[in-house]
């Protein structure tokens, strides 16, 4: 798996894949997409990198242990359920805030988005945990 074509292609494809994964994540609230698919995209970018170079190098550019990423994602998803409690709603009820932007428009940020970001990292972390442990045999 060390063909030069594959390695060069991976080098070029890696950044766009990560950007696209973020795009898919953000698009997910109203259109097909979301945290799960986005996380898979990001995970496959790193898996590709591990295939083209080596698991050790993929770990190196990730800088974190994928298990920590999973834990962080779970924490984010869990915390996203708490805000509605302060407005006396049930756990996990969707809560939205409107952020005014300098341009005059408002940006809607909601707990479903935060939850989705948590899912993104959980999927990303779990996928890489499996891929790395399979690849390190």
């Amino acid at each position: 798996m060390t063909s030069i074509i594959f390695r060069t292609a991976t080098r070029y494809m890696f950044p766009p894949m990560l950007v696209f994964s973020a795009y898919v994540l953000l698009r997910g609230h109203h259109y097909p997409g979301g945290g799960f698919v986005g996380g898979l995209f990001a995970g496959s970018a790193f898996s590709l990198y591990a295939l083209a170079f080596s698991v050790a190098e993929a770990r190196h550019i990730l800088r974190m242990d994928p298990r920590d990423v999973t834990a962080a994602g779970l924490a984010v998803a869990l915390l996203s359920g708490l805000p509605p409690l302060f407005s006396r709603h049930a756990f996990l009820t969707g809560t939205w805030w409107a952020l005014p932007l300098p341009s005059g428009a408002t940006l809607d940020i909601g707990t479903p988005l935060i939850f989705d970001i948590g899912v993104y990292f959980v999927v990303f972390g779990v996928l890489l945990t499996f891929v790395f442990s399979l690849g390190e045999e």
């Binding site: 779990v126 996928l127 045999e137």
Partner: peptide
């Protein structure tokens, strides 16, 4: 997906 991934690792 998750279960199959785990099963692969376990079987290996």
């Amino acid at each position: 997906f998750a279960v199959t991934a785990f099963a692969l690792v376990l079987f290996l």
